[in-house]
């Protein structure tokens, strides 16, 4: 049990339930033959089995369809960072613990280090870069700046994405809701006070969606 403490679950995404959910999602998409695996499966002529060489996959990222050639073993995070230069999502633990790699998959926060890129086909992927730009920050990004919810900033993109998904699912969060629901992201510099304030402020501004 991380932290040996009592971590309330149920109202949001704790680190544990986050993982469980993610695991279920991974299994589910793994069972879908053909479609999600796209051209790759067809090319191999053997439904459900692709690789081990590079295959061509199509990902819908930030509203744009992108084709990339990758080996089936490559994670969504590594495709984003190493192939598409979308480096906002960070690789920190690479084991589904810290949340620095969080992106949205059909609006839900997931750890992109724990999903194969090939399994993200057919889903709408939103990365931190898709939420706003330095010139036009989203409400959550602006609140992070305003409340100084960042120091070194390495956990920040993952946190912003997770907080965005959280507020979309919990329009009027209390401080207790935030503590319970955002345990899936870790910060080393200690910015949790700013994060909490930022989520409270952004939730007010985000009425009607991000």
């Amino acid at each position: 049990m991380p932290h040996g403490g009592k971590r309330k679950t149920g109202t949001g995404i704790s680190r544990r339930s986050f993982l469980t959910t993610l695991g279920a999602g991974t299994v589910a998409s793994g069972l879908i033959p053909g479609g999600k695996r796209g051209k790759a499966a067809a090319a191999e002529g053997s439904p459900g089995i692709v690789g081990p060489g590079e295959v061509s996959i199509t990902l819908e990222i930030n509203g744009k369809s992108q084709e990339v050639k990758v080996e089936p073993r490559v994670t969504l995070l590594d495709v984003l960072r190493n192939r598409l230069d979308l480096t906002g999502a960070k690789k920190v633990c690479d084991r589904g613990t810290c949340g620095a790699c969080t992106v949205l998959l059909d609006g839900k926060a997931i750890y992109s280090c724990s999903l194969l890129a090939i399994e993200a086909q057919g889903h709408k992927i939103t990365t931190i870069e898709g939420l706003g730009t330095p010139e036009q920050l989203s409400a959550m990004q602006a609140a992070f700046v305003h409340h100084d919810a960042q120091q070194c900033g390495f956990c920040t993109p993952g946190f912003v994405v997770a907080c965005t998904a959280f507020v979309n699912a919990h329009a009027n969060p209390t401080v207790e809701d935030i503590r319970a629901g955002l345990g899936g992201n870790l910060c080393r510099c200690g910015t949790y006070m700013g994060v909490t304030e930022a989520v409270l402020e952004a939730a007010k501004a985000m009425k009607g969606g991000a």
């Binding site: 480096t87 330095p134 602006a142 305003h146 900033g153």
Partner: peptide, 13 residues
Amino acid sequence: DRLDGPAKASGTA
């Protein structure tokens, strides 16, 4: 606000 806040919060840093 920190000057590089927007770059960090938008993932462009």
